[in-house]
Design a protein around this nucleic acid. Sequence first.
DNA 1: TCATTCATAACCCTTTTTGGGTATTGCGAT
DNA 2: ATCGCAATACCCAAAAAGGGTTATGAATGA
Lengths: 215, 215
Amino acid sequence: MKDNIKESLRVQIYEDNEELRNMLSMLLTHSNGFELCGAFSNCADVINNIAECLPDVILCDIEMPGVDGIEGVRIIRKQNKEILILMYTVFDDNEHLFEALCEGANGYLLKGESPAEILKALKEMYAGGAPMSPSIAKKVLRLFSIQREKTESDLTPREKEILTLMVAGKSVKMIAGQLDIAFETARTHIKNIYEKLHVHSQTEAVSKAIKERLV
Amino acid sequence: MKDNIKESLRVQIYEDNEELRNMLSMLLTHSNGFELCGAFSNCADVINNIAECLPDVILCDIEMPGVDGIEGVRIIRKQNKEILILMYTVFDDNEHLFEALCEGANGYLLKGESPAEILKALKEMYAGGAPMSPSIAKKVLRLFSIQREKTESDLTPREKEILTLMVAGKSVKMIAGQLDIAFETARTHIKNIYEKLHVHSQTEAVSKAIKERLV
DNA sequence: TCATTCATAACCCTTTTTGGGTATTGCGAT
DNA sequence: ATCGCAATACCCAAAAAGGGTTATGAATGA
């Protein structure tokens, strides 16, 4: 939601390289619609920096001496879920990327993006988006498709249904009740499931079902 | 205009709305660097369509009568992991989004994007990116951060250890053996865990532990 | 038509789990 | 020094789950 009165986006910078930090500062101070509110060389004092300057968004490198960017995000998110954080880094490996996203970063740009792209990303983030460099977006999407190989089990539909209820924590009695079948019928299905999965208890079955994505 | 003969991106369209399909066809035939190779109203014959026209990328609606877009992606990916697929839909709900991504879509645009954005997304996808509408990108990123909040439970370290073994499918006897404690001690811990989680069985505890990411 | 699979259901019997206690030891905080 | 808590351990009775077996009707397919 954009505020008519607010004329510019308040941006705070964290970047250890002085040259780049100055360049980014210049970029922001001289671009319409942006306002620089602080530029720091690491996240050591990030809570105070935010409290003093009240930025809308944070542009944050990852590799920095002292408190790094990911640790910075962690610290910020412990008490502030609202402020927007755009990672800006050379790291394009999965580890840094997913750690940053898990801690609550709102976007992830690789160094190498043009100044115009940086400004666009900051705006996009403020408008409710999640800007990512193309190769980063691809890595993120790939996460969804790679894992999908659900092991082919020869469970019947009914058995799958019952296994699902077991995974949900239901007892035999509850399963029978919910599916409107006799207790002994539910048990028969469960026994067949155990045989097919080569397990001997509900917890084992549930564990295996989850590990092998059978449900 | 040097590359309008050679090096144009071959795009195939799947969209049930005839008006929109024609509009998209026009857009592609009249844009430099793009070449339309087929426009269809559903994915019923997607394998043949691809084999005949050999597109580089596919622009694909989701809601279509007959074989819909998500089913289409599934069919394509069964035999072709290379071709690029950009979903183009009105659906911005998590279910459609994540299903499409899991099946192997390479990008996800919402209807409402400008023609220029569509062309840009097609190009970006071909360049190795994963274009998403801003609000879609945000949903995707949110997946990483929301789940990270492991519910704060007041389980002791020993209890967490035991819960972990339960989640792995171990019985009380096995847990006791593995931790080298008495059977009754393991049971005491388990009883305490049940009380803290408000559950009454191993499967319930395992289910809750997984759902609330306690382990 | 006949064999197979699936979903349904029941029986007997054993083992495990669960819920209720009680109790000791050790360790850090008051 | 004492309090509280975590970890250890045991007992008993009831409930639930597990293992084996058999059986029937419906649907499917060779």
